[in-house]
Design a protein around this nucleic acid. Structure first.
Lengths: 151, 151
DNA sequence: GTAATATTGTTGCCATAGAAACAATAAAAA
DNA sequence: TTTTTATTGTTTCTATGGCAACAATATTAC
């Protein structure tokens, strides 16, 4: 198998496997909250004063999907919307107290997941980790350019 | 940001971006075929004599999802099912001629996508590429163990 | 300023996938 | 062999996201 192919296959199965493992834990500790809901709460928690369009482009989903999700999260009173005085079009979001609670639980789950995979990093030399991270960052920059040029 | 976190964020946005870029090209060259359909055709093309359970565990989706997908692909006459004489339960699949055509188009698209990102690999030293690939492989093995132990 | 264009958010319809209950069959235990 | 358990594939219900049309508002061109 060629290197590029090996890289892509490796990555996608890696993330598939993580998702599979994370789902069980999420299920038990964030019962009643769907992954997509938690993911959106996570984003809003990390980026206060953000609107539908920003969320959609950062999360690589359509505005429609975000619009539906934010409506649902508002119905569950996990986020609240607000507007700024000189713009009647854009709608911004922030977490409610209940939303922050979910955010914190999710953060601690992330720590568990990190701990779960810690050994892989510990077994790897710092030089190799640096190579991996810089490669990923370089690849991301490459795609950013293509995405920008695409319109 | 911690290394592990950086690694995970980098990977997931990387794949999100690729999906975004690939979608346009797929749309134009495999018009009328959904990504999930093509993905399944790809798997069956690469693994002849495979059944629902095998497909589902290899693609990390439920048997239900595979069952529906194979039904649809059969309705479109892209795959066909068959059974072996001493087993009335398991159902195997293979590509039809039409399915093989889709498979081949998809293969050539993959080449296009590889060409698109070739420069990233060319800019990287062989040693660094090796580090990246072996890290991903090590990480995958780690998760394989966890998945096996989970049941 | 007004008109044309772009952006923002929403909605309806459809495709896809998970969960869980189920029937048919196979494998293991007795 | 017979009974029990496990596996396989299917189906229903529900959740989610894309697409595309749309209304409201903002921005740009004139």
């Amino acid at each position: 198998m060629k290197e590029q192919e090996q890289f892509l296959n490796g990555l996608s199965t890696l993330l598939d496997k993580m998702q599979l493992l994370d789902r069980d834990t999420m299920q038990s500790q964030l019962n009643g909250f769907k992954p997509a809901e938690v993911h959106t709460i996570e984003f809003i928690g990390k980026h206060s004063h953000t609107n539908v369009t920003q969320i959609s482009s950062a999360m690589y989903v359509t505005r429609g999907a975000v619009s539906k999700m934010t409506k649902r999260l508002m119905a569950k009173e996990l986020i609240e919307s607000y507007q700024i005085s000189d713009n009647k079009k854009e709608i911004y979001f922030r977490l409610t107290t209940a939303g922050k609670r979910i955010f914190n639980i999710h953060e601690s789950l992330n720590h568990q997941f990190e701990k779960r995979d810690e050994s892989v990093f510990k077994q790897t030399s710092q030089a190799d980790i640096d190579a991996v991270l810089s490669f990923i960052s370089k690849y991301n920059q490459h795609l950013d350019v293509l995405i920008k040029d695409r319109q």
